[in-house]
């Protein structure tokens, strides 16, 4: 049975560089998947293909909720259902925190100003930033900015949330507050695909951990199995390098 997110034979080239080498992946509705692997393994490219921030070749197919992720009129619809949180936050610096969250519901969904503002304040309370609504992003710490970015993605009430190394640009003391928000989200039944280097998070929160290397999925297993009994040598070497010291 095809998954809620269905990825078939995903091929991606940067010029002559073969970045993704035929990835097949089915992700169920409500599943929390963590994607791990060395830098340059194609993890970020993979999730950026899901909402087509990266183009991919025509022999490949990605479906989200049975809708093909193709350029054109459908793409904005898919993107409205698929939220994304970036490594570098990418908040809109000319808008206040509240306006950042209100923008997409207002423009894409046509939500009224009052409703969007109420929703924004509710989401800010949920990520622990109720008092920061009037500030501009530049007045917030990295951890706070990333929590606003999560609230902004949630405002579209997405079925899927993609996280592209959400804590990699943060000072170490701020990683926890962002992971806590993500841990709460994982309980809500939203489908999550998380590219991360946080092995503790993957172990505790993921339903499934995927290990990528060289543009391929090498191993895919529930975290208990993945961390205690990895089948592949490359997985073992990677885990050895990131965990044992």
């Amino acid at each position: 049975m095809p998954g809620y997110i269905s990825i078939r034979n995903l091929q991606k080239y940067y010029g002559h560089y073969h970045a993704l080498r035929g990835i097949d992946l089915e992700i169920a509705r409500g599943e929390v998947v963590c994607v791990v692997g060395p830098s340059g393994s194609g993890k970020s490219t993979l999730i950026r293909c899901i909402n087509r921030l990266e183009d991919f070749s025509t022999e490949s197919a990605i479906h989200v909720d049975s809708v093909p992720v193709l350029p054109g009129a459908n793409l904005a619809k898919v993107r409205a259902e698929v939220g994304m949180v970036f490594q570098s936050f990418n908040l809109f610096p000319h808008l206040t925190v509240r306006q950042n969250i209100m923008l997409a519901p207002r423009r894409v969904r046509g939500t009224s100003k009052t409703a969007a503002a109420a929703q924004a304040d509710q989401l800010l309370a949920r990520v622990g930033l109720a008092s920061q609504a009037e500030k501009y992003p530049s007045g917030l710490s990295g951890g706070q900015q990333q929590r606003v970015a999560i609230a902004r993605a949630l405002a579209m009430e997405p079925q899927v949330l993609l996280f592209d190394e959400p804590t990699s640009a943060l000072d170490p003391e701020m990683v926890g507050e962002v992971l806590d928000v993500m841990r709460d989200l994982a309980q809500t039944g939203v489908t999550m695909v998380v590219v991360t280097h946080e092995m503790g998070f993957a172990r505790q929160v993921a339903d499934r951990v995927i290990f990528m290397d060289g543009g391929e999925v090498i191993e895919s297993a529930p975290p208990a199995e993945f961390f205690s009994a990895p089948r592949e040598t490359r997985t073992r070497n990677f885990l050895h390098a990131v965990l044992d010291h």
């Binding site: 970036f86 809109f92 923008l103």
Partner: peptide
């Protein structure tokens, strides 16, 4: 304007015109 601004707008489902009017041009004009 950093590429991430275009990507964040696209990921939210904003169309090209909305991205320009609401996200990119207000920052460019300054």
């Amino acid at each position: 304007i950093p590429k991430g601004q275009f990507e964040a707008a696209a990921a939210l489902g904003l169309g090209h015109r909305q991205t320009m009017v609401d996200v990119i041009l207000p920052q460019s004009i300054r």
